[in-house]
């Protein structure tokens, strides 16, 4: 599972495919504020990103790396703000 919930934290790990969008949405509908941990997420499908943008939850954990850190996180922060 690339999306899972543990101790009320929603984890995205590795490469999150398009199907994760639905799972993530269900988890966020239950806990609209998250928090979401992206530290192990290397890639996410656009559909997954779109759920994060729409929910605009809180984030926790260490910053992720690569494309997610460089280009996705700044866009999520905008959503948070």
């Amino acid at each position: 599972m690339t999306v899972h919930c543990s101790d009320d934290v929603i984890f995205l790990e590795g490469t999150c495919p398009v199907e994760d969008a639905e799972n993530l949405l269900i988890l966020l509908q239950a806990n609209p504020l998250g928090p979401v941990d992206l530290s192990l997420c290397t890639r996410a499908h656009g559909a997954v990103l779109q759920v994060l943008l729409a929910a605009s939850p809180e984030y926790c954990g260490a910053p992720p790396h690569g494309f997610v850190q460089e280009w996705i996180v700044p866009n999520l922060k905008r959503g948070v703000a």
Binding site: V18, A21, E22, L24, L25, L28, Q29, P32, G46, A47, L49, Q50, V51, L53, A54, A55, S56
Partner: peptide, 15 residues
């Protein structure tokens, strides 16, 4: 604009 999470269709692209 983003809909409420309850109404969101996750596989409809809105970005």
């Amino acid at each position: 604009p983003w809909p409420a999470l309850a109404d969101m269709e996750p596989f409809r692209c809105n970005i």
